[in-house]
Every structure is written in C-alpha cells, then in structure tokens.
C-alpha cells in the first residue's frame, strides 16, 4: 500500500510540473496563436473577394437555407461549410463560402468568393491532400483563374465532362472537386440572393 502511494505521489509531482510548464507556455502563446488563425482566415477571405474589408459569419442564415434545401430535396449545397458576408464601409459587396468537396485524396478545403453581381470573384485552396505534382496543381493561381467571372445560373463542369473548364492534365478528379465547390457556391448565392430580396441589405 505504501509503495503504491509513493509511486502515485512521484507520478503526481511529475505530472504537476509538466502541467505547470504547459500552462506557462500556453499563457504566452495562446493570444498569438488565436491572432494567427484570425489573420489567416481574414487573408483567405480577402483573397477571394477583393475589395471587402470586413467579414461577418452568417451561420444562422446558412443553416436556415440548408434546412429548407434539404426539405425540398435539392442537392449540391452539402459541400458548403461556412458562409461569410463581405463588407466594405458597411456595404455588402459579396459572399464568401468555405467548401470541402471530395477530391482524390480526401476533402479539399476551398474558399470561393461570389460578388454581389453573382460572379465568381476568386477561388483559393486552403488545405488538400491531392497527389503532389498533379492534383496539387489546384493551388496554382493559373488554374484558379479559370473560374473567375463565371456567373450564377451557369453549371460549371470540366471539359472531360462536357463542360467549359480545362481540367489539370492528369488530375480530372481534383479539378472536378473545385468545380463542385464553385457550383455549390453559385447555387447557394442564388438562393440567398433571392431570399433576401434584391436591394435588401444583406
């Protein structure tokens, strides 16, 4: 019994010291880490919706639209994870969606911006696990540019599927995933836009 208590006590002391060290490190790094994450998000959103300065998470609106869409059995919105309203001087300039369409090596975290006119203003890839050298070319700005300017009501498809976008050579599946994200974003934009009547402040 004494032995067990002694071992327990030693372990307790070691754990307590370890815990204290971690608490101290966490104390000096947590603010910086949170700030880094916020900067990263802000930058990703600004990249795809040029001109907007502030972004507001529109989680409630997104859930509402998603619930209605699933009631009506409309597909295509499942790729959307989050929706942000972009503002410049208190005026809404567009919507930004974060999506995770299924790629070749798992979901591809994509950010898609749609301007108020209903045109794709930017596409960027945040995180992916596509084949290096092939599918990983989806991070290439030259490829992402191919989607810019496509407006709502158009169905985006890669050329292999009879569409208008040139897929990356040897990486049709990855290219198709980005097209899925863009389609989801355009569809979502249309629904949100119609819902909040034109001219209405989003």
């Amino acid at each position: 019994m004494r032995e067990v208590l002694r071992l327990g006590f030693v372990l307790l002391v070691v754990c307590a010291i370890g815990g204290a060290v971690l608490a101290f490190v966490d104390g000096i790094t947590s603010d910086r880490i949170a700030a880094q994450a916020a900067i990263r998000l802000q930058k990703a959103l600004e990249d795809v919706l040029p001109g907007a300065a502030e972004f507001q998470d529109a989680e409630e609106l997104l859930q509402e639209v998603k619930a209605e869409a699933s009631k009506e059995g409309r597909p295509g919105l499942t790729v959307i994870d989050k929706m942000y309203l972009g503002y410049f001087q208190d005026e809404c300039t567009g919507l930004v969606f974060t999506c995770s369409p299924p790629g070749y090596g798992g979901p591809i975290e994509t950010v898609v911006g749609v301007s108020l006119k209903g045109e794709i203003s930017g596409v960027s890839v945040i995180r992916h696990a596509e084949t290096p050298g092939l599918g990983s070319n989806i991070t290439n700005p030259e490829f992402q540019m191919r989607f810019i300017g496509i407006s709502k009501g158009t169905e985006v498809k890669v050329r292999e599927d009879g569409g208008q976008i040139d897929a990356i050579t040897g990486a049709t599946i990855s290219s198709r995933a980005i097209a899925d994200a863009v389609n989801g974003a355009l569809l979502m934009f249309e629904i949100v836009y119609d819902k909040e009547a034109p001219g209405n402040e989003l």
């Binding site: 030693v10 372990l11 070691v14 754990c15 370890g18 060290v21 971690l22 490190v25 966490d26 000096i28 790094t29 947590s30 910086r32 880490i33 880094q36």
Partner: peptide, 21 residues
C-alpha cells in the same frame, strides 16, 4: 508513464511555440 509525461510536455511546448511564432 514518467517518460511519456516528460516527452509529451516537450512536444506540446514545441507545438505551441511553433504555432505562435
């Protein structure tokens, strides 16, 4: 268990410092 606690403490420290800086 003591090795694990010591190693885990160091790893978490590296992880947090890297994430911050």
């Amino acid at each position: 268990p003591i090795f694990i606690v010591v190693i885990a403490t160091f790893v978490t420290t590296v992880d947090l410092i890297m994430a911050a800086f």
